[in-house]
Nucleic acid binder design. Structure first.
Lengths: 126, 126
DNA sequence: CAACCAAGTGAGAAGGGTTCTCACTTACTC
DNA sequence: GAGTAAGTGAGAACCCTTCTCACTTGGTTG
């Protein structure tokens, strides 16, 4: 419990991180799996999930879910997104409108964070 | 396409709606299934899902997902919730902090709504 | 450097949530 | 009351995710 847990450095995990770095938006595990395997060096789907879980625990990636599958992206300092209802793409928002937790909303509820999503349609899906 | 679609009035759907009305928080399909069947008149799980889908399309219920399962609740005028990371319960927020969509966040993205969730731990889970 | 071992990997099975299929029933309309 | 589009139930099917188990590998220690 001394800060974020360190994960072991393997070629598979490095490939997964590279995909996330070049993605520009949040991806599902299957999308990551497909992109990682593009150069012929496939990585097992179970490994993708394990690595993403380890990254999430270590604070390297953040997760978000809409509809069926969970989407993963590199963790940044904000937690807000634009979500396209047409194609499901997640785009991080540069500036967080920073909503304040309403005081006394529910007795005894301790707010530790928030998640704000603007729903709509991206340029391609309109 | 003339406003919200009307759904047919059946005893099963009436029971599902009654469960949602008396729930006080968002429920998973399986929880609804269990509660509907409490008085011995079980309703098929597929029917639960179909009814919930029809209700959602008609605008009667709203859906929200965290972790594995999707949660359903009666649609109200707001879209914000308190989410307990311990037990997964969803509680609607009376007052919506009403975040404004940031202008020019992503070229061509048309914002049609938002979803704001305050994450934390309820009184029981702290 | 060699040995050790905890962590990671791959393939497939398993598990849980959701949707589909198909024959049957029922609510609404004319 | 008859016709028909919508809804229902049971179980199979489907998809996403996690688990299992034998094997490999990264990083550390002697």
């Amino acid at each position: 419990m001394t800060g974020p847990r360190r994960t072991r450095d393997t070629t598979q995990r490095r490939r997964i991180l590279r995909v996330l770095q070049t993605a520009g938006c949040h991806l599902t595990a299957r999308e990551i799996h497909r992109r990682v395997g593009r150069d012929g060096h496939a990585v097992g789907l179970a490994t993708i999930y394990r690595a993403l879980g380890a990254f999430a625990r270590a604070g390297l990636v953040e997760t978000a879910s809409i509809g069926g599958a969970v989407r993963y992206g590199l963790a940044t300092e904000h937690h807000d997104h634009l979500v396209c209802l047409g194609c499901g793409r997640w785009q991080p928002l540069d500036r967080c409108p920073a909503p304040r937790a309403p005081r006394g909303a529910a007795a005894g509820f301790r707010v530790t964070g928030h998640r704000l999503e603007f729903l709509g349609y991206c340029a391609r899906c309109r």
